[in-house]
């Protein structure tokens, strides 16, 4: 009997050891070694012969089925027109982001003083280094905003330590809808995406009504 218990304990220990070892291996594969020197975009562009063009595919791990779900998770929802945009290297020089200056026409959710504009940051853009080396990160699968366009942005609050100058979309692919042509054009381009199925080509006024249904009007406190 004691022999049987002893074997069981040894077996259990073995299983624990194997699990711990495996998790250690995966962790090593999945995480960057802190001792490994960081490779900047400049380094990569130099290695690529002075010009680097890479594509950027945002994660589609989470797909929201409708604007109600998107609105629930947004800290701020605004309707605004893009005044201008500018690309810049992130502080760690490993990525390029584009900041879009947005003139706010309506705040549907969140607190924003009237007349304030908002800076919305998107991944991707181009950068030319001082010696002429060039890097471009081009987003694929979703449409970026265009200057003078009118959009609805579903935004999350700016997180501390973020590499981006402005606020980010709550969902990188689904969190923006163009209304420029008077009808809805979701930023997500996959035709089978729920946002495309439900809202593409919907008249702008109807779409705004849908958003207001999802976000009840907050009465101002006097």
């Amino acid at each position: 009997m004691p022999g049987k218990i002893g074997r069981k304990v040894i077996l259990l220990l073995l299983v624990v050891t194997v699990v711990l070892s495996a998790s250690g291996v995966f962790a090593k594969n999945g995480r960057q070694d802190p001792k490994k020197p960081k490779v900047t975009l400049y380094d990569k562009a130099k290695k690529a012969g002075g010009k680097l063009v890479v594509t950027y595919k945002p994660n589609r791990g989470t797909i929201y089925p409708n604007i109600e779900e998107l609105a629930k998770r947004s800290d701020m929802i605004i309707v605004g027109s893009v005044l201008s945009h500018k690309s810049s290297l992130t502080p760690d020089e490993r990525f390029i982001a584009q900041d879009f200056l947005v003139k706010v026409h309506e705040v549907i959710k969140g607190d924003l003083a009237r007349g304030r504009s908002v800076l919305v940051s998107f991944p991707g853009g181009t950068h030319r280094f001082a010696d002429g080396t060039y890097a471009a990160i081009m987003p694929v699968g979703f449409k970026q905003p265009e200057d003078k366009g009118i959009y609805v942005f579903f935004l999350k609050s700016k997180t501390k330590g973020s590499a981006f100058n402005g606020q980010r979309l709550v969902s990188e692919r689904q969190g923006m809808f163009a209304l420029t042509k008077g009808t809805v054009e979701p930023s997500e381009r996959a035709p089978d995406d729920p946002m495309n199925v439900k809202y593409r080509e919907m008249p702008a006024a109807s779409f705004l009504r849908e958003i207001h249904k999802a976000v009840p009007v907050k009465k101002k406190q006097n």
């Binding site: 999945g30 960057q32 680097l52 063009v53 595919k57 945002p58 992130t90 490993r94 990525f95």
Partner: peptide, 21 residues
């Protein structure tokens, strides 16, 4: 994390594939 060998890079809350053109 970022893995140049696999050609995949994720930093902060953005990920991209190292697809060269």
């Amino acid at each position: 994390w970022c893995d140049d060998w696999w050609g995949i890079c994720c930093e902060y809350d953005y990920c991209y594939e190292m697809e060269f053109y």
